[in-house]
């Protein structure tokens, strides 16, 4: 009986403490999320790193904006970047956090390069992950003026080379970028390369049609 009472008392204490901590967490602004070495932190958390990513992701909603200026002076980075970078390090496939972080950085903060850096973190762990390439190009073409077409060409080529689930329209971006870079001569070789890289007969047929159209337009 005494033991049971003791267990109930301990359990009650933990529940009270958890509730108190939660209320505290809800009401007080958090310090900026910054871990000196996210890679080391990821390796320490091991199989629990996706759960840690969720924790930091939830915490990032409570960051006090007044911290951002101080941190920016010292680190030349925004607080939001630190928060989403840590989340991405811990779970590189957590696409919601990545999408939110990159879009917020490039659209609201006007820091497109920082948003590209965030995508690079995800690509550091998963080279064959298509989504960060897609985000990079979307943010570049959406929020950076003038567009850096040379970068876009590099990303599209890398995405087609290294990832598996690349949609066919990604090749169109490559051709569009080449046209804007005035590299007309390279379009022909790029189309041939896209034909080589095609993953199905259907894709091959579409690219062949594009080559034919291009040849007719340019009278080759």
């Amino acid at each position: 009986m005494k033991n049971n009472l003791f267990v109930i008392f301990i359990a009650g204490f933990f529940i009270w403490n958890a509730q108190f901590s939660y209320q505290n967490f809800e009401n007080t602004p958090q310090k900026p999320l910054f871990v000196e070495s996210p890679t080391l932190f990821k390796s320490i958390t091991g199989p629990f790193s996706p759960l840690a990513a969720d924790w930091f992701w939830l915490q990032s909603a409570h960051i006090d904006p007044s911290y951002s200026n101080t941190l920016k002076q010292h680190k030349n980075q925004s607080t939001l970047y630190d928060a989403t970078a840590l989340t991405t390090h811990l779970d590189p496939l957590f696409y919601s956090a990545l999408r939110y972080g990159t879009t917020y950085l490039s659209s609201i903060k006007k820091e497109v390069d920082l948003s590209h850096q965030l995508c690079d973190i995800a690509l550091y762990y998963h080279k064959d992950y298509f989504y960060p390439y897609s985000l990079k190009i979307t943010n570049e073409m959406g929020y950076h003026h003038p567009y850096r077409y040379d970068q876009i060409v590099k990303w599209v080529k890398k995405a087609i080379n290294e990832t598996v689930d690349v949609p066919l329209w990604f090749g169109d971006i490559l051709i569009h970028a080449r046209k804007n870079l005035n590299q007309q001569l390279l379009i022909q070789s790029d189309l041939k390369w896209l034909l080589e890289m095609a993953r199905s007969d259907k894709e091959k047929a579409v690219i062949k049609l594009k080559i034919k159209e291009y040849n007719q337009q340019n009278k080759f």
């Binding site: 790193s49 779970d91 992950y129 689930d165």
Partner: peptide, 9 residues
Amino acid sequence: TSAIINRTN
């Protein structure tokens, strides 16, 4: 875990 909870291939 990461691939499973994010439903990637």
